[in-house]
């Protein structure tokens, strides 16, 4: 089945099974490997991308449900230069192994769009992604700064 997928502003026509998770389409069909596979069951958030501006977990998002919508991946987020979230991630030296950080950055970027001044409680309610290296204290510090609450 042919599906038109709009990713980072570019339309791709793809022949994939409709139930294929968006994650594998991004990684294996389009070569956008910045979006990571962590669990396959929407439990870790490593695969977070933006769908019409909202954070979604692409590993459980069938590609057939997102045809025609605006999909933005980590590659698209900073395409015009590093975003404030990414800059704060560098300032606070957030990543360790870094594997979860594409998903973290996408989740935080989506939160800040709807809630530019999140409290710690807002942050932890919205961002339930898993980081195994333990970068959480720095994520919290970076978001406090972004929220003007540092």
């Amino acid at each position: 089945m042919a599906i038109d997928l709009k990713v980072n502003g570019q339309v791709h026509t793809l022949d994939v099974e409709p139930d294929t998770p968006l994650l594998w389409v991004l990684r294996d069909e389009l070569g956008l490997t910045g979006t990571k596979f962590g669990c396959g069951v929407a439990a870790c958030g490593a695969c977070t991308v933006h769908l019409d501006g909202e954070a979604v977990r692409s590993c459980v998002t069938p590609v057939s449900t997102v045809a025609g919508k605006e999909i933005v991946t980590i590659e698209g987020l900073g395409a015009g230069g590093l975003t404030d979230v990414q800059k704060a991630w560098i300032t606070h030296q957030v990543p360790q192994c870094g594997y979860c950080q594409s998903g973290m950055v996408m989740a935080v970027a989506a939160l800040l769009k709807t809630n530019p001044h999140p409290s710690d409680a807002d942050l932890q309610a919205a961002v339930t992604n898993i980081c195994r290296c333990g970068s959480y204290p720095r994520i919290r510090a970076a978001v406090r700064e972004l929220a003007g609450k540092a």
Partner: peptide, 14 residues
């Protein structure tokens, strides 16, 4: 190693 880990360009085994 940090800059490549905030924009998706770091290359892991996967």
């Amino acid at each position: 190693d940090v800059p490549a880990k905030v924009n998706g360009t770091a290359q892991y085994g996967i």
